[in-house]
Design a protein around this nucleic acid. Structure first.
Length: 427
RNA sequence: GUGGCUGUAGCUCAGUUGGCAGAGUCCUGGAUUGUGAUUCCAGUUGUCGUGGGUUCGAGCCCCACUAGCCACCCCA
């Protein structure tokens, strides 16, 4: 459809049928993080560009080619946040939230990356972020994985998500391994496929994931990350696995899981599904002990994850896990001489006496037929009728719209009508 | 950023070798002037994604652009 002004590519409007789904999902997310004792933080969508280039890594795809970056009126370079962790750390440092104390935090909101849109990948997308600061043990790594697992259980989608787990070692071990790997890849550079040649310098650990058969052969003799791990890193990972297993969490070890943001170390994980096509990672995260210091704070251990809201909701919709929910419980129809005034007054009174009911007053006039059709379309549970006779007698007619064919209806004094409505809504 | 497919009514889609722009649904009104998913009748759907080109004539063929979908890539 040709429209004179269109939305920016990859940035979607959420219409009433969408927001009904989002609100259901958001409610479960909020309840769950609260049940783990986490607190909400809200950060600006805009940050100084160098926050992201320092936090995420200068040579990552996200920073190199996916950020929305521009100069504001004072000439300062700003960027729309491509992820939430950097801004969260910045906020914590700025307000001394993590000076000698631990924090368990969460946030939810839009992120921006200039990628080619496709199913489950949009230029404005939304994440639930969970971040923990000041705890360095495997127990907290396990906790955030258990938190995410709790979400899947509550949504009823645990069977459709698999946990992939890996460890990258300490920052030093990881850097040392990266160095070794790059040296090895450079020695065989001529025989690598094109993607792997590029990745050798952009994201060498990703080369391990190459599907090219010739590169695969070369990789057989490549140095192994596991060989670079020290006893401490190994113990951390073993303990994490121990806790997950004792809590009944199944996982797959995936030594090629490295993730694209530079700040990760030790534990990394992803929850993946095969129900969404190419964008199968619904939730991913890990430990990032070096980031706080990198951004100028005192060294502070940290761990967290991001959950893609669009992918979650796409999965919930695909698996038909969201309840259809109407927007209206009671529809007020009428055709008395002073209809607009009397209906408005009645509707206000009903809302006051039935505070949890969603009550819509018919506006715009028209026949009863039209008004009832509207009530039915909205899937209201009951209609309240205010006509000439009701107004004269001081009564209301309450019609049960779920009763079937003609529907049961009773004309009652106000108080009894309210009581009947209460019973109908409870049913 | 690269490739493949697609774009016709609000929605889902037909549209023959290039020859009057269609169906279903939705919406509106009526059959029933105080009663809703059914039924029956009537009615409105329009920049055929945009701009060029070929042609007597283009929804259809050609080019460019744009948007969407899917995949690569990347990640949530």
């Amino acid at each position: 459809m040709a429209v004179s002004i269109q939305a920016v590519r990859g940035m979607n409007d959420l219409l009433p049928s969408d927001t009904a789904c989002w609100q259901q999902a958001e409610q479960v997310l909020r309840e769950t993080v609260a049940s783990f004792g986490y607190s909400e933080v809200r950060m600006p969508l805009l940050e100084k560009t160098n926050l992201f280039s320092r936090a995420i890594g200068e040579v990552t795809d996200v920073v190199e080619k996916e950020m929305y970056t521009f100069e504001d009126r004072s000439g300062e370079s700003l960027s729309l946040r491509p992820e939430g962790t950097a801004g969260c750390v910045r906020a914590c440092l700025e307000h001394n939230l993590i000076y000698n104390q631990e924090q368990r935090l969460w946030y939810m909101g839009p992120m921006f990356r200039h990628e080619r849109p496709q199913k489950g990948r949009y230029r404005q997308f939304h994440q639930l972020g969970v971040e923990v600061f000041g705890l360095n043990g495997p127990d907290i790594d396990a906790e955030i994985i258990l938190l995410s697992k709790t979400l899947w259980d509550k949504f009823g989608i645990s069977d459709n998500l698999k946990l992939q787990l890996n460890t990258l070692g300490s920052s030093e071990e990881r850097m040392a391994y990266r160095q070794k790997l790059v040296e090895y890849l450079e020695a065989h550079f001529a025989d690598l496929d094109e993607d792997s040649k590029r990745r050798t310098h952009t994201n060498p650990l990703r080369v391990l994931d190459s599907k090219d058969p010739k590169t695969g052969e070369i990789l057989l003799n490549a140095p192994k990350l596991a060989d670079c791990l020290g006893a401490e890193s190994r113990a951390h990972f073993d303990k994490l696995r121990d806790i997950l297993e004792s809590c009944g969490v199944n996982y797959e070890l995936n030594s090629r899981l490295v993730r694209g943001l530079d700040y990760y170390n030790l534990t990394v994980f992803e929850w993946v599904t095969d129900a969404l096509g190419a964008q199968g990672t619904v939730c991913g995260g890990g430990r990032y002990d070096g980031l706080v210091a990198e951004l100028g704070g005192t060294p502070t251990p940290a761990v967290g994850f991001g959950l893609g809201m669009e992918r979650l909701i796409l999965l919930l919709t695909t698996l038909d896990k969201l309840k259809e929910r109407n927007a209206v419980d009671i529809y007020v129809v009428g055709a008395c001489a002073d209809a607009q005034k009397e209906q408005a007054k009645l509707s206000l009174r009903l809302r006051s006496d039935l505070p949890h009911a969603r009550i819509m007053n018919h506006c715009g006039g028209g026949s009863f037929k039209k008004q009832f059709r509207r009530a039915d379309k909205l899937q209201a549970k009951a209609a309240v009728i205010l006509g000439e006779s009701e107004l004269k007698d001081g009564t209301l007619t309450v019609k049960d719209l779920r009763a079937g064919d003609s529907g049961a209806q009773q004309t009652l004094p106000y108080a009894e009508a309210v009581a009947l409505l209460q019973r109908l809504l409870a049913a």
